[in-house]
Design a protein around this nucleic acid. Structure first.
Lengths: 346, 346
DNA sequence: CACTCTGAATGAAACGTTTCACGATCTCCA
DNA sequence: TGGAGATCGTGAAACGTTTCATTCAGAGTG
């Protein structure tokens, strides 16, 4: 097996305690001794056994992060934010991908708990599940990411989806649209429902009747293909809508494609607003207007809250942080101007 | 602190050895005893301490996976494949994202080694680095993902990029193109260089002179924006090329946008081939012809090789697995036909 | 010289498991 | 009735660290 601290001690002619001190409190060891130990370490290729260290120490310096889907740029950016903060504060992040499946989420929670992580950041499949509650009951700090727990017994970080819908609605109304399609994912998802609420609010605020001005199309999947089909169906049915607000950018891209395919001009004949402002949104055939969420900041804030709770368990007070999304206007809703990024093409 | 096996034993009125057996070898324990222990476990909310278990057992059931960029669908799919196989074989996967930075890669290697993972799957920043060599020297099995080590002292799984370039070239030549632009990322990357090699080979095989038929444009970044700019520049310079082969799909999408913007028809005026066949390729304004890599299979194969080596360290023989990519033809190169996916739109 | 003080190193205990040699009890059959 | 198995359970050792009370050797002081 790999050499232990004992082998190192032997080779350096010191006690194991001293080797441990070199590793953890170098300042307590005299220069000469330290050098001797160091060279023994490199000579033997010693690597600390973290199981033993953690067992003895009784506590780890790591936190778990369970996301729904690492392929989703949203969660990817959140993870990046979390890692940044964790790094700064000397914590390690254990990254887990539940893939939206409860059994996977449960398995990861089990693993994290067995590893005695200090805390868990999670976008749970359901805000309250058997295992998750058990984890909290046993005293492991938990922070909800992109979710809120109505029963407010833990910290959470989310984005104001009502506000996002409102931004989009206000923008479209301001451009003169009086007939807006809301191409949504499952309205059972809070995010989708909230955005509709915001949209209606904005429309109402402009003096229009939401029930007349807004047509809701609910789809099960939130990808380009579904959206393309939905938009095609709308066109075929002779929809009079002049604008579409989509639940995410992929759907918006699907709508964009359907529109261009059928000879519609964007934004003149149809204005399109997406959501998430994924990287590619700016590089679409017609750059997409979208709602941007401060994803990295979400991750940073969540990590900070968690570490705060880990470090001061008694004085800690749970917080619900809510970020505001931001409207990014691009060509897909702009009044037609010379394309900004291509002016010097010819 | 959380209850230990000892607390459980006390409460159930048995010895710690018995509790351990219930956990690890239930068949060795009589039904009644097992039930008593189980109920003590749930009553106390006992969760096994994996540090202690691993320390005692001396060996873990986990492997590390270090990828360059989890945002990249390629690596995401690879990871999925790895997880599948690991699951089946009872291993846990520790997922790490080096973000193309050597310090991060090194830090993760350190952590994995301290955790005594059984083996490591890695797409290294450099095929041979200080730390990576050290890891291998100490006897931790290693499998290279999407890389090859010329010195062949470990397993590796990769895709035949020369073959990919060849597929693309043969396809374009067959369609009658005699002037092809290769829009590449840094040619210092083996992948980019290999694809060019394949492209030249296919062109030569068709009796054309590669130097005349192929124009290479090398860009630093491999995204849509760069590609859009590069394509625009080509058009402005009056390029006579009738087709573009791009180093990845994002670049292809950038080229597509530039072409449509300047009134070109795709594929009649310009045929476009991408690489990777990302999910969105099929949903672009003009669906993209692309080269698909068997990403999940790469992950599966890599995990299988690693586990094989972990389980039979002496009999194991290193293997270099090379997958063949596949051409997926879509509209961006097809002779113009009624769009396949939109026939019933009107 | 006797003394305290300081800095450095030691050695044993403890962390929570798993393992394994050993008992204890029961069953079955000669 | 006695002995051989089989079946269950026990208890102590061991895994590789960290921690902390203790020892030791000098240096400084009166």
């Amino acid at each position: 097996m790999s050499p232990s601290i004992k082998d190192v001690a032997e080779r350096a002619g010191v006690s194991v305690g001293t080797v441990s001190n070199v590793l953890n409190h170098p300042e307590r060891v005299a220069d000469g001794t330290r050098a001797a130990v160091q060279s023994a370490i490199t000579a033997l290729g010693f690597v600390r056994n973290s199981s033993a260290a953690q067992l003895r120490a009784g506590t780890s310096r790591s936190i778990g992060l369970i996301v729904l889907d690492m392929a989703n740029p949203f969660f990817h950016d959140v993870a990046r934010g979390v890692e940044q903060v964790a790094d700064e504060l000397g914590y390690a992040v254990v990254l887990c991908n539940s893939d939206d499946q409860l059994p996977r989420e449960n398995r990861y929670l089990q693993v994290l708990e067995e590893q005695r992580v200090r805390g868990v950041l999670i976008t749970p499949i359901e805000v309250s599940s058997e295992r998750l509650d058990a984890l909290r009951r046993r005293g492991t700090p938990t922070v909800l990411v992109d979710r809120h727990d109505p029963r407010v017994n833990c910290c959470s970080v989310a984005v104001d989806d009502v506000g996002g819908g409102e931004l989009s609605g206000a923008h479209l109304v301001e451009l003169g649209h009086e007939k807006i399609v809301y191409l949504s994912g499952p309205l059972a998802l809070r995010q989708c429902a909230d955005r509709l609420t915001g949209l209606r609010r904005a429309v109402a605020a402009a003096g229009l009747d939401p029930d007349e001005a807004i047509e809701v199309v609910e789809e099960r999947a939130m990808n380009a293909r579904t959206a393309h089909a939905a938009a095609s169906a709308l066109f075929a049915a002779g929809s009079t809508a002049t604008s579409v607000f989509c639940a995410n950018d992929l759907m918006a891209l699907g709508v964009l494609r359907a529109a261009l395919r059928t000879g519609r001009r964007v934004p003149e004949d149809l204005a399109i607003v997406g959501y998430d402002d994924i990287e590619f949104a700016a590089d679409a055939t017609i750059p997409l207007t979208s709602i941007r969420q401060p994803t990295q900041q979400i991750g940073r804030a969540a990590a900070q809250l968690l570490v705060e709770e880990c470090d001061n368990p008694e004085t800690h007070a749970h917080q619900q942080v809510m970020f505001k999304p931001e409207l990014v206007t691009r060509e897909s809703t702009a009044a037609r101007k010379p394309p900004r990024e291509c002016v010097d093409e010819f």
